[in-house]
Design a protein around this nucleic acid. Structure first.
Lengths: 144, 144
DNA sequence: ATGAGTGCAAAGGCTTTGCATTAGG
DNA sequence: CCTAATGCAAAGCCTTTGCACTCAT
């Protein structure tokens, strides 16, 4: 995780921000999590953190490109490390309970998607930043 | 659009619901729109509708599989006709202004994605419902 | 010392809900 | 007639903001 810390320090500094203890705790927590976390889940795991600081710091970390916010139809937004700190992946979203699980797809598929998207960006004049490829379904627990 | 009305009537009835004038207006509006609409946009176009009824009816139409809710990082949720009433498509989302535009990708790409997703569903035990393939970027208007 | 960061509490704002009225079958 | 649907207003709830205090430099 020292790697993440270094990147975080650098990227925050570039935005005129510091890598404080609270922010580091958030990064550690997200790095350790297997899937994106909601703020209630974060507060559960780190009772010492103030809710407002968590919101503020996650927003700040997002602005510095360290964290990514995922909005589903669930009640809460979820947060995970930015993609360049982990590996490119997608999400399995349960339409019933809202849980999000990380998955990867074969490079072949990624490549064909990327090519198609580049063409679309070209046609439409959109300046492409990234893509989202999510699977929506019912998780095993909810299906039972 | 009679087609849509027939499907709507049938699908609502199957859920024990009626296809009322308000609900029909919503369906018409969404069918006519080139891209998913927010509730403020809907109220603008149909000033006669009550906000609470719009929320309630859209929720109901969603539950009956006639309408789909799209959540972005924008302030408002957006609504469009369910995919089986239009054609399978994806979204170009502007990360700055939140506007959503419909796009289609080549069948070849769809096929490769579908195959990969079926495999993932199989491995993970998720009961797959649908997938989302969104492009996030900056629209021409915001890039200017 | 001085500005950024923090925590508590209160406010915001999209969305949902209660309730009396109206419409549909 | 009798249940569902509507509209207005009020409440909910996730998220944001104000402000005084603390910490790091």
């Amino acid at each position: 995780m020292e790697d993440v810390d270094q990147v975080a320090t650098a990227r925050l500094r570039a935005h005129g921000q510091r890598y404080t203890r609270n922010r580091r705790e958030l990064m550690d927590l997200l790095a350790a999590a297997a899937s994106p976390l909601t703020i209630p889940e974060i507060l559960e795991r780190r009772p010492g953190l103030a809710q407002s600081s968590v919101y503020r710091n996650l927003m700040l970390l997002e602005q510095s490109g360290l964290v990514q916010r995922i909005v589903t139809n669930d009640d809460w937004a979820r947060f995970e490390l930015a993609e360049d700190l982990t590996e490119h992946h997608h999400h399995l979203i349960c339409s019933n309970c809202g849980i999000v699980r990380d998955v990867t797809v074969p490079p072949r598929v990624e490549k064909s998607v990327a090519t198609a998207f580049a063409a679309i960006a070209d046609e439409t004049g959109f300046h492409l930043q990234h893509h989202r490829l999510d699977l929506v379904g019912v998780c095993p627990a909810c299906a039972a």
